[in-house]
Design a protein around this nucleic acid. Sequence first.
DNA 1: CATGAATGAGGATTCATTCAT
DNA 2: GATGAATGAATCCTCATTCAT
Lengths: 194, 194, 194, 194
Amino acid sequence: MARPRSEDKRNAILDAANAEFASRGAWSTPTSAISRAAGVAEGTLFTYFANKEVLVNELYRQLKTELAEVMLADWPEEADPKTKYRHIWDRYVYWGVDNPEKFKVMSQLKVSDQVSDESKAAGMAPFLRLEVLATECIRNGLIRDQPLPFLGAMLGAMAETTMVFVAQTKSRKGRAGYCEAGFETFWRGIVAGA
Amino acid sequence: MARPRSEDKRNAILDAANAEFASRGAWSTPTSAISRAAGVAEGTLFTYFANKEVLVNELYRQLKTELAEVMLADWPEEADPKTKYRHIWDRYVYWGVDNPEKFKVMSQLKVSDQVSDESKAAGMAPFLRLEVLATECIRNGLIRDQPLPFLGAMLGAMAETTMVFVAQTKSRKGRAGYCEAGFETFWRGIVAGA
Amino acid sequence: MARPRSEDKRNAILDAANAEFASRGAWSTPTSAISRAAGVAEGTLFTYFANKEVLVNELYRQLKTELAEVMLADWPEEADPKTKYRHIWDRYVYWGVDNPEKFKVMSQLKVSDQVSDESKAAGMAPFLRLEVLATECIRNGLIRDQPLPFLGAMLGAMAETTMVFVAQTKSRKGRAGYCEAGFETFWRGIVAGA
Amino acid sequence: MARPRSEDKRNAILDAANAEFASRGAWSTPTSAISRAAGVAEGTLFTYFANKEVLVNELYRQLKTELAEVMLADWPEEADPKTKYRHIWDRYVYWGVDNPEKFKVMSQLKVSDQVSDESKAAGMAPFLRLEVLATECIRNGLIRDQPLPFLGAMLGAMAETTMVFVAQTKSRKGRAGYCEAGFETFWRGIVAGA
DNA sequence: CATGAATGAGGATTCATTCAT
DNA sequence: GATGAATGAATCCTCATTCAT
């Protein structure tokens, strides 16, 4: 058997792509820069990804998957809804803050035509658990009735906005403040009542 | 180089850039495609814009300026704060819905490294009136105290999210529903109380 | 007005392509070698020929056209058929002998998939006069009846074979001998009788 | 490197090369396509043929050898010269018609710089029997005196031309007609007399 | 020996920008 | 000022060949 394809190498390429995209912009990063940063030959990149577009899409999906994993890890199954939402919120915000490169790349790819609608859809899949939570909250009247995708998109947009401000802030206290303020806006915004 | 003569030509190039960027992606649009779409020679583009980066930045600023103008037109000086916010909200949302190409391009440029921080800052300028409104609302306790830029960013992010859903919706009623729901989430989220 | 496209430059590229194709083989000649030999920038080649395939096809057509012109120049309108055929034969053979590069390239391109059927068909067009002659000869019984294209193809194949031997031969006398022998074989082969 | 074990594999590669060359053009066929078509690994090809050039030359020789075998099989030792020539002619023509891929590839390789002069010479060797026949015919005055290689080349060129027309023709009768007409032209062309 | 991943030079284009007309 | 031909660096990808498994 010949050398097997190396998962490590594949990941190295993906990581390198992420790093290069973050520093030079997703476009304007030549594949040669990616392979160099990954420590592989230029041609090797193409044994792992048929072409640049495929690489970009794979990267997008991987980023989304990772984000979903992080958000849903340590899921507080027994907690009340607000706590659950807060759990997601914090994870989301801090993932972005702790991984600014990944967040930046994801932001760029999200609006890029380079990422296929299929990939965008696939990126949504891992967020299913969220929908279950939202459905319950709406059913029992805790949250105002509205389309689930809309609710999810609002959460995402608000958390991302929050991220930016948290990231800009140095003090631990200030960061927590933004995170709290953002969530509070979100939560008050969606709960039923008054 | 003397000041180019035709303001029309300059605008034609900017419009063409917008259209091309929207359909082919902001990057991956060659200047030749822009000049062709604008009906000018390839070289002519460079008498109006020193290079591609300048063109991109100019386009971004123009888009931002136009948006600000639209948002603040017919300003209801005498109305109450919620109405004023709603005014901004509706204008914002419907501008994006009515100008999907411009919105798409703005979204791409916003996260692009091609647009300088200076341009991004300049893009903020026209939103001053907004800050005045927010400051007042916070001072008199109508809105919870928080940094103005954060509040503005939240408004923007939520309105943009709303846009997407409005744009996807066919029926006039459904569209109004999303617009309303989005604003309600925003408003409940920021007002003080409870 | 900008610089006009230069017919000279176009021809320089075509000539360079011919020379390079002849020495390195039609395939395995990079476009960069052609542009260098033509004394133009690599990109310039592509303002005259959309891509390599177009260039190859244009070259083929030009070669064919040139050959036709040479063959039919000084046409002995008043001469008898054999003389006319001999006129064509000699012109054909000596064009190939005098332009070995062009002949070699034409030979390679003729069997190449790179040259479209359309180009091949276009290459036939200039040989119309030949068909008129053949038709007459067949009608008046001088030549055995047979499809015109078949007759033309035989002439071509036999003349080309003759070329090779003429080209290999140094002495003027030997060359004339091959040319004569080849024609005699052709002529005896097609005339009616016995 | 030891002598590779499987003659089958070697032939599979040669056959695959032939098929690929025929459909994609001799050049522009990567070795990877050949190995894939042959059902062997990319690297395996190189244990059977040191490099692509060697493979191409081997293929050429094999084709030539096969053709010679076919042409000379069932040799009518006792027949008269014309019958013998006709035997060769028919075999040649129908081999080409029945093996259009092989014929196409041979045609391409014949004019290719990729095939060495040595290979081209080697390709001639099997046709020795032909030379014996020709020598005899010339000696006893049946055929006009001329260099043997020239005569052989003429035969080849004319038969190949005939092939093309036979191949284009559907009806059995039409095909036989071309074959006959071609031979008649050849035979009348070379016999002595008048 | 078979396999197919790894390599990196090479190749056809593209494109921002310049400059002759 | 307008035009578009000219430029050549840069880019994505291919492919013959090598070599680790």
